[in-house]
Structure formats: C-alpha cells, structure tokens
Write a protein that binds this DNA or RNA. Structure first.
Lengths: 243, 243
DNA sequence: CGCTGGATTGACACCATTCAATGCCCGTGG
DNA sequence: CCACGGGCATTGAATGGTGTCAATCCAGCG
C-alpha cells in the first residue's frame, strides 16, 4: 500500500514484472540519473509537438495521456500510475503526438534519454523489457478501441473499472478497489462519453450492485458480474499474477 | 506501383524508412529465412489466443488486425499493406490479443521468431528500428481512439481516408487514391459505425465533392478540404516524406 | 459562510443503429 | 447468351442510445 520513497523501487518493480534482472542489470538501473519533483493536478507535463529529452516516470498521483481535439474536446488514452513510464516512446519518436497531464497531485521522476539509451545499448535484455512494456501499452490501446467502438456505455464503463482495478492490484493493492478514481468527467473523456452519461451509467452500475462509491474511493462489490458486464478478460494486460 | 517480387525488398524499405542501414545490416536482413505463401480474402492468419512462432509480413493484398467481441461484432484496429509486419509484437508478447485476417487476396511472408531474435541481438540498431515501428503502430492506435471516441462519423471517415492515402503514398503510390479500398462493412468495423451509416457518410463525402468512387478505387478530389474535415495532421504517422 | 469543483437529475434533441427492401455488379453454370 | 446467386452498395422508416442544455445539490475548504 505504501508508496516507496525511492524512484528506483517503482521502476525496478515495473521492469521485474517483465523479466528477472541480474545484479548487474539492477545496478545499471539504479545508476540512472533521475530528477524527482512534485506535480499538481491540472499540470501538463508534456504537450503534443514537444520534443522531450527525458522520459517521465510516475511515482505517485494519477497521470493521463490525452489528445486535445477541436473545440475543447479531448480523448484520454491512458491512466498511468505508480511505476508507469508515460512516454517511453519518446526514446525513439522525437515528437510527442499527445499530451501527458497530471490528474491528481503526485510525484514524477525524469530520466534523461541519453542515460536510458546508453543503458539499453549495454543491456539488451533491459531494452527488450522496455520494448515489451510499450507493446503492452499498445495492447491496452487496442482494447480501448474495441470498447469505445463496439460496446455500450454500460459495458465499456464496467470494462474500464475492471482494468483500473486489475492494474492497481498488479502493483500491490489487495482489494478490489480504486483508491483515487478519476472524476466522472475524466472517465467520460476516456470512454468517449459525455459526463452526463457517465453519471447515468455509474448510477446503473451502482443500482445493479456491482460497485459502490465512497467519495474518491470506488469499491467493486461483484467482481465476477462486473467482469462479464464489461466482457473483461485480463489476458490483454499480460500480467504475471492472476487478477 | 508494381509489387516487388522479393519479400526482402518490402521489408528493407520498411526498415530503411526508420534508419539508414549499413551493408552488413542489409545483409543480415536478407539472410533471414522467410516462407512466402498466398492467402485468400477471408482467411484468418492468426487468432486471439494463438502463440505464434513467427512474424507475418504483408507482401500484397490487404490485411487487418481485429478483435471479435460478443455477438459477431468486431473492431478492426489496423489495415496493413505491403511491407507491414502485422504482429511484430509477438516477438515479445507470447499470446495474441487479437486476430490477423486477410481482407483481400495477397501474399504474406513468415519470419521465424528465432531468426528475428538472433538478428536483433546482433544488430541493436535494427532492433531499435523495429521497436520504433511498433511505437508508430501505437501512435496510430491512439489516433484511432481519438477518432472513434471524439469525432463525428463524417470527420472520422474523412480522417481514415486521409490516413490510408498517406500510408499508401508513403510506400510508393503517387496519386491521392486508394487502389483497393476496404468494403464499407470493413470501414464500419474500423470506424465503430454501422454499415448503413458508413454508406450515408460516404455519400455525404461524395456530395461534398471530397472523394469519388470507381468500383474498388477511391479517389480523393479535394485533399485539402478532406484533411480539414477529418482534422487530419499526418505528424502522428512519423513519415519521413511529406504527404 | 460563501465559493468551487464535482456529482446528479430532468427534459429534449439528434445522431447513429436497426430492420427491411431494393439495386447493382459480376462470376458461374446451364 | 441468359438466368441465377452472392457480395456489396444504397435507401427509407422507425427506434433508441447518447449528447446537450440547464438546474440543483453536495462536500470540502479557505
């Protein structure tokens, strides 16, 4: 439950969820320079068009990747939590195609591209693990496309809740709970729904006895039924541990 | 225009669109074992849950990645053409999270994972180029999420047409034309729309003078207006050449 | 205590789906 | 040469899921 004080703990756990590391490799990661700072909700860390020279590691709080489109509309493409590197892609793609923004206060660490590149060249297994992490990102994007394109508001909301719970559990939480859920507006911007309809849908989920709301805590009451309502199968997350 | 006879030509062009290759590296790619075969429209090359031991390179025809969801509904997540490796991800993710299917007759080449892995270990620059290719895949998935989640049927159809034209042009076609377009049903399954509404939307695009249809050929009549209708900015494709 | 961000609700409009037919092109077989 | 069938495109009508607009409510907080 407690968030680790060292930025390396989060990063190591993330990478070790992909491969087992040798002592040498662990050391290489812990030798990475990292600049940690606090960031407040609403802050935009990276903007579409930027050419970052470092990668952004989430240490606490809630971060999202999003695109702004037209008149204030936006699409959120991922929620990133403790241990996620939000823009690993910037290591190989110079220009950002989307924003990275803080949704809730937290801490982020910045890892210089130069140091990361040097490490990946000397440690191809770590490079492969990072590559794998970006591939899992892509599987999640694909899943979201399916949800947004082909499922009802009810099903896709249920699916997103399942995903957030599964990911939170995979980094250490034990309960079927989302401790600091996104706002309904943020959920809408992730699900391709209006805020009003997210509200209606959440109410339906509550009335069906699948979830309960306690302020910013969202509690899953019936994990099995919620999964089937969202047609959720965690295989696409490629987690080592069962959900 | 003419499709190359050698499977290596397509693959080399693809990789060389990311990095300049040394003679040594070119040779390594041309030494890859590849098994070419014809595949007919409707054939499913890979299925969700499969554990492939080779990657699939498109040589001709039209291929898609898709997920089946619930009662016969499906979401197409990409259209793949000459030179695309549809499942590069399977090099690092053992289980397929989606299907790969032929939409139009063509040829595909299969590259064994073992040979690819051996090559990437000895040629880290090629590994980086392939990694980059998967990252661009992800940028396209993100863009599709925005389209499906936040744009009108008209705008997202226009956007998809722009993307298909831009990609076809990037691999050698000169005109603003899609030679073998997907069917309207396939477009619908990619856009998150019903076939009927795709039809109405295509009519609207025709009546607005943006495109014209000649059987399976789709001709863009007004590239500028089509782009603005779809809010299309090719930056996310990370093409070296301008559209 | 008033302010602010978020949640909630109702009424209404509309975009897109569904259902159902029809049309068109083209390859195949009699 | 024509009839037939299949796949795809097209169109109309009715339905409905979701968006929009507009209030109101609520809790936390300075």
């Amino acid at each position: 439950m407690s968030v680790s004080s060292s930025p390396y703990t989060a990063l190591l756990r993330k990478i070790e969820s992909h491969i087992a590391l040798t002592t040498d490799e662990r050391q290489a990661i812990q030798n990475l320079p990292v600049h940690v700072r606090a960031a407040k909700a609403g802050e935009t860390l990276l903007r579409e068009g930027d050419r970052p020279s470092q990668c952004c590691l989430v240490l606490s709080g809630l971060v999202c990747r999003q695109k702004i489109v037209g008149e204030g509309r936006r699409q959120i493409m991922s929620f990133d939590i403790n241990g996620d590197v939000t823009d690993l892609q910037s290591l190989h793609l110079d220009v950002m195609d989307h924003d990275v923004a803080m949704l809730q206060d937290g801490k982020v660490g910045f890892l210089p591209h130069a140091a990361l590149r040097a490490m990946t060249e000397r440690h191809p297994r770590i490079a492969a693990a990072l590559w794998r992490a970006t591939l899992i990102d892509a599987t999640i994007f694909r899943q979201w496309m399916v949800n947004i394109g082909r499922k009802s508001a009810y099903a896709r909301t249920a699916h997103l809740i399942c995903e957030l719970v599964a990911l939170a559990r995979s980094v250490g939480l034990n309960e079927y709970v989302i401790e600091h859920r996104p706002t309904q507006e943020e959920l809408g911007n992730a699900l391709g729904l209006s805020i009003v309809h997210v509200n209606r849908t959440m109410r339906a989920l509550r009335e069906a006895g699948l979830v309960a709301s306690e302020g910013r805590r969202l509690v899953v009451l019936d994990w099995e039924v919620l999964q089937s309502a969202g047609e959720f199968d965690p295989a696409y997350l490629h987690l080592k541990t069962a959900v």
